[in-house]
Design a protein around this nucleic acid. Sequence first.
DNA 1: TATAAAAACAACCGAATGGTTGTCCAAATT
DNA 2: AATTTGGACAACCATTCGGTTGTTTTTATA
Lengths: 105, 105
Amino acid sequence: MIERRDVFQAIADPTRRMIINKLANGPLNITQVGEDFGISKQAIAKHIKILSECGVITVRQQGREQICEAELAKLDEVVDWVAASRKLWNQRFEKLDKFLHQIKK
Amino acid sequence: MIERRDVFQAIADPTRRMIINKLANGPLNITQVGEDFGISKQAIAKHIKILSECGVITVRQQGREQICEAELAKLDEVVDWVAASRKLWNQRFEKLDKFLHQIKK
DNA sequence: TATAAAAACAACCGAATGGTTGTCCAAATT
DNA sequence: AATTTGGACAACCATTCGGTTGTTTTTATA
């Protein structure tokens, strides 16, 4: 098994997606991030760690608090991959069109 | 842990992303999909199952073969989620702008 | 100063993940 | 008719995942 820890894995978990959505409204410390999720603060901290390792969020120290901020530019990687897949798919139909056009003559 | 089996999980694995890319060039049977990956056909079949359960590909029987075809429209869910997160993020700055504009008067 | 709060560190747990091998069946091919 | 081929089914395995609890350290606050 290869080392996986990328944006795709970061957004695979629904709790992490919710964390990203929460942070999209503005920076929060870990305790604030964890509010309203029914899980322990430690579990949240682990998600935060994964998200920051993947570059989807950044974390900075401020006194005793750990402030988390969304880095939504990282999600470009995901959108780019989808776009590239779509391009391949469309090219496939273009090729078919060209072929059909050719045999019609 | 809740039952997770959605598009986000489907594209989380790099092998599955490569399968999607391969199928974006046109339909293939399971054996063909598995070529050039260094893993067993059974492992590929499992990935195919997950992808089809998530609606990212469709599988149809044709004689003794199982033909897989990409359903890239399903990836909209991912793009939509990213877009929604971005929207929140942008609104955040708009609010800040409005606030700064207000205190300047 | 005593206490509460934020978070790190560590150990543990059950379930899911990604992979393997072996057996078997049905459809093609020879 | 015999053999190959595509794939299903099942059992197994090590690792990762998402979560827990308990302890400790540091920073605020009453």
